[in-house]
């Protein structure tokens, strides 16, 4: 399985996937930490978190997969949602919570 196939499998078999630097417990980047925080505040309890610092292949591969040059990257039900700015903005105006509810992956925060 190449890295693109691996990524496709991850984002299609887990409802919420976050490609990030570090782990949800120990984020290694402020932008990644911010997305983890927003997901928690949205009532998300199950996130498949992929630490790109553990694999240069994954770190490059995810940028190619989404044609998006930065990390973190959030996927909900296989769909690329955005990076830190977008996720935060969607949280602030309630769109993220709605999207999570529509996807059936989070209760009310």
């Amino acid at each position: 399985m190449n890295v693109q196939e691996f990524i496709r499998e991850q984002v299609t078999t887990h409802p919420i996937v976050l490609f990030m630097k570090g782990t949800p417990q120990f984020p290694q980047c402020g932008f990644s930490a911010a997305v983890v925080q927003v997901l928690k505040q949205s009532g998300v309890t199950q996130v498949a978190a992929m630490n790109v610092l553990e694999s240069d292949e994954l770190r490059q591969g995810i940028k190619e997969y989404s044609n998006w040059p930065t990390i973190p990257q959030l996927y909900i039900n296989g769909e690329f949602v955005g990076g830190c700015d977008i996720v935060k903005e969607m949280f602030e105006n309630g769109e993220l919570q709605q999207m999570l509810a529509d996807a059936g992956v989070a209760g009310e925060a």
């Binding site: 044609n67 998006w68 040059p69 930065t70 690329f80 949602v81 955005g82 990076g83 700015d85 977008i86 903005e89 969607m90």
Partner: peptide, 18 residues
Amino acid sequence: GRVARHRMVFDAVGDLMQ
């Protein structure tokens, strides 16, 4: 949309992001 706007910016910025 938001993602499209960011992509427009990233496309313009090009390899500086690398």
